[in-house]
Write a protein that binds this DNA or RNA. Structure first.
Length: 557
RNA sequence: GGCCCGGUGGUCAAGCGGCUAAGACACCGCCCUUUCACGGCGGUAACACGGGUUCGAUUCCCGUCCGGGUCACCA
């Protein structure tokens, strides 16, 4: 009955349902293997939430075996940005997320289930849209946005239980064929809508791997499937693509939960098997409420939150595996214990059970990220660190880069100093922040004394003078510290911490106090790696002149 | 507003009818100590609220509250 309408709508579509189907045969996957995808829109820089979704898809697929592909959802031409696809591919590649099939460049694809960008699949979507019109499960709609608005207003006024384009409200749903044909011939603008068979008020149970059974009303909306530009909406493209590309598991953000009934209805209308759905909780952030007191959580936002951009982590110099570790720590409660046991294993060897992923959105926690990153850095070899820092500094830190270029050996030595038995560094931008006294040629210590030094103030110049007197750059660590101890004894600073704690009143202070004077003179701070090591990074001249400068500043006040 | 999802310490998060309610991060303290750290040990701190069901509820049911999502020719 609607064959004529279908033909009028899509005169150029010659392919049939069966022919399209035959183009994409079922995959020959081993028992238990899966097929998954990551399907971003090239509308801007990569979002951390997108990376998270991609990562979980990837690890899930690796642990089950199967195929993981990259599909570009570029059906909204207004929102496209230049080089959007490249942006996505580079970001994913940088984070070690690799695909078996899909887009591999701005215009190139790899794999036999393509094209993997939706803008190139117009004919395929239209083939199935045409089919739905033929079997009367879809129809053209001529409503303008003004008319749509008018319907909405009427629904408001009538206090309709459900708003939207459906049933009686769907003005174009029951136009007679002659009218439709005439309007098409007349050149009236049209789109294609689903003729939903769902019933208002009738619920049905849908399944999600994380949330389990979800009871929702059947879809009743006559959703748009083909837009005015001939391209499909997300919903329709999802159904057609994930069927033809033989996706077994759709793992996506939880904002799609509400669309499950629509998607399932379309799968069923087209006689496609429904894939398993897994909806991932978003990464959240706390925010002060705009109107008054309290805080609320919201999703990490591209616009407001710098940490939402994956580029942020790269710029800050977080090692890639650290970011991945953190993301998976959020993604699966099983991950941390596993990582503890398998510190050197690839993250992709983790066996991910998605049903154990949390249903509530996790708050992004920088403390935790930094902790995870520090452990990661702690496990990197110094060679790896050298390579990673060099590459990073080359891109983001001219000062540090210049230091490395001119003092590669010293820089290597310095890595040992802060890396061995320490967990201070989470990201490469910490280096200049934490250790300007090693890496900044212009470094000087200002003479403002820490409060803790005040009781010792009068003695410090003399102590430093004595220290300098016996200082020998060629001393090894033991010799050097023994001399420090000698100075300590001479000034009645206790060299055994245990003894000092028992009778502090017997001494001017402890070796800890005295060491911190030297430490501060050298570095301007009281928390640093091993001093002997630092001395041999900054060199003999600086090791002497800084102490001398600090001493004379104090003495001359 | 309708519908859906969620709500265990500051954060992440085990728990799946009976526990002194794990663990990690952060914080604090102690120990170790050749300083700084690392490490070890310990501590503060939680089942949103109200009803049920049950011999017994963090766990099951209902309601309330709070948070999030969704109701587009955007994805």
């Amino acid at each position: 009955m609607s064959k004529r309408v279908a033909e009028a709508l899509f005169p150029n579509i010659k392919m049939t349902y069966q022919e399209a189907e035959a183009l994409y045969p079922p995959r020959d996957l081993p028992e238990g293997a899966v097929c998954t995808r990551f399907a971003p829109s090239p509308t801007g820089f990569m979002h951390i939430g997108g990376l998270y979704t991609a990562l979980l898809n990837s690890i899930f697929t690796r642990s089950r075996g199967g195929v993981f592909f990259l599909r570009i959802e570029d059906t909204d031409q207004k929102r496209q940005i230049e080089n959007g696809v490249t942006e996505i591919i580079n970001a994913l590649d940088e984070f070690q997320i690799h695909f078996d099939e899909g887009a591999i460049g701005e215009t190139e694809d790899s794999g036999r289930y393509g094209p993997y960008r939706q803008s190139l699949r117009k004919e395929i979507y239209q083939t199935f849209a045409k089919y739905l019109v033929e079997i009367d499960r879809a129809y053209p709609c001529f409503c303008t946005s003004d008319e749509l608005e008018a319907i909405r207003e009427k629904q408001e006024a009538a206090e309709a239980l459900q708003k939207g384009y459906y049933g009686e409200w769907a003005a174009c749903r029951n136009l007679d064929e002659e009218t439709v044909l005439k309007r098409i011939a007349n050149g009236d603008r049209w789109i294609v809508r689903l003729r939903s068979g769902g019933r208002l008020g009738v619920s049905r149970v849908y399944h999600d791997m994380i949330r389990g059974d979800i009871s929702m009303q059947e879809n009743i909306l006559d959703a748009v499937i083909i837009k005015g530009d001939g391209l499909p909406t997300y919903h329709f493209a999802h159904v057609v693509d994930d069927h033809l590309m033989r996706t077994t598991d759709v793992i996506r953000a939880d904002e799609w939960i509400a669309s499950i009934p629509l998607h399932v209805e379309m799968f069923e209308m087209l006689d496609f098997p429904v894939p398993r759905y897994t909806h991932l909780s978003p990464i959240m952030k706390n925010e002060a409420k705009e109107d008054g007191e309290g805080i609320s959580r919201r999703k990490l936002s591209k616009r407001k939150d710098p940490e939402a951009r994956v580029g942020y982590y790269d710029e800050a110099g977080y090692p890639i595996p650290a970011v991945l570790d953190y993301l998976l720590t959020i993604g699966s409660a099983d991950y941390e214990p596993w990582r503890e046991e398998n510190m050197d294993a690839s993250i992709f060897d983790f066996s991910l059970d998605l049903s154990k992923s949390g249903a509530a959105g996790a708050l992004f926690d920088f403390d935790k990220l930094n902790n995870v990153a520090k452990k990661r850095v702690g496990h990197m070899s110094e060679e790896q660190i050298f390579a990673s820092v060099s590459a990073w500094a080359g891109r983001y830190d001219a000062k540090l880069n210049s230091f490395i270029e001119h003092n590669a050996d010293i820089f290597r030595k310095s890595i040992t100093v802060w890396h061995e038995r320490r967990l201070d560094v989470a990201k490469w931008s910490d280096l200049m922040e934490l250790y300007p006294y090693m890496y900044d040629p212009a470094f000087t210590v200002d003479a403002a004394l820490p409060d803790a030094f005040l009781p010792h103030k009068e003695r410090i110049p003399e102590i430093l003078g004595d220290y300098l007197e016996t200082f020998d750059y060629d001393d090894d660590s033991n010799e050097w510290f023994n001399k420090v101890k000698e100075v300590a004894v001479r000034h009645n600073y206790c060299v055994k911490m245990g003894a000092y704690k028992k009778r502090p009143e017997d001494y001017n202070g402890s070796i800890a106090d005295l060491s911190s004077f030297i430490r501060y003179a050298l570095t301007g701070t009281t928390n640093t790696p091993d001093l002997h090591g630092i001395i041999h990074v900054i060199g003999k001249d600086a090791a002497v002149s800084r102490v001398e400068a600090f001493r004379s500043k104090l003495a001359n006040r």
